[in-house]
């Protein structure tokens, strides 16, 4: 079973690294953590998995107990998996679809001023997004350098926008609003 480790618990590990854990402890720890979340600030989750982080001890803790708060130095050396920062991002709207390419109007999300026109190969569209490709469809395009499991890679990512499907209720609501507006407007 995958271990769920609490950050504060991690800090109190002894010099030999891993400590014994049992299911009751996990459940109680989880429950108490769930209870603690009922506060007025919504914070990032403290829960991390053992799979995501590797850890090295940085110094001898002063106290061997698992239940005291962190006695670690300022730096707890952990490594994070894949991340992608500093990308140039656009939202595009498809304007024309050709045999092998499509054109789009691109609005720069980093600098939303002037827009751009882009031409893309159809084979740049992920296969599962092809059904979303149509004139007027919106997609996100990002370009930059990603760190994927420690490897730095140049990336160009296209992802078509996916939103909740249009429902009969949405349709009816919009029509109702239009009907009300029709009655209220001061027509010539």
């Amino acid at each position: 079973m995958e271990t769920i480790l609490d950050k504060s618990w991690l800090n109190a590990l002894n010099t030999n690294g891993s400590a014994k854990i049992d299911n009751d402890f996990i459940y109680n720890s989880l429950q108490s953590r769930v209870d603690k979340q009922k506060n007025i600030f919504i914070d990032n989750s403290d829960i991390i998995t053992s799979q995501e982080f590797s850890f090295n001890k940085v110094s001898e803790p002063q106290n061997q107990s698992f239940f005291l708060p962190a006695i670690s130095p300022p730096y707890l050396i952990l490594e994070s998996k894949s991340y992608f920062t500093g990308a140039q991002k656009w939202i595009g709207h498809v304007t024309t679809i050709n045999e092998h390419t499509f054109n789009a109007q691109l609005n720069d999300l980093n600098d939303p001023t002037t827009y751009e026109i882009g031409e893309f190969d159809l084979n740049e569209v992920p296969p599962e997004d092809m059904e979303l490709l149509s004139v007027g469809a919106a997609f996100y395009w990002s370009v930059g350098k990603a760190n994927m499991n420690g490897q730095v890679e140049k990336k160009s990512l296209i992802r078509f926008q996916r939103m909740k499907p249009w429902s009969a209720t949405d349709y009816d609501d919009a029509l109702d609003k239009a009907d009300t507006l029709f009655k209220e407007l001061n027509w010539d």
Partner: peptide, 19 residues
């Protein structure tokens, strides 16, 4: 410059509609 280089290296065809 770093983004421009990546755009060029990936052969992305875009142009600005200047104002």
């Amino acid at each position: 410059k770093s983004i421009e280089k990546i755009i060029t290296s990936l052969n992305c065809k875009i142009h600005e509609v200047k104002y």
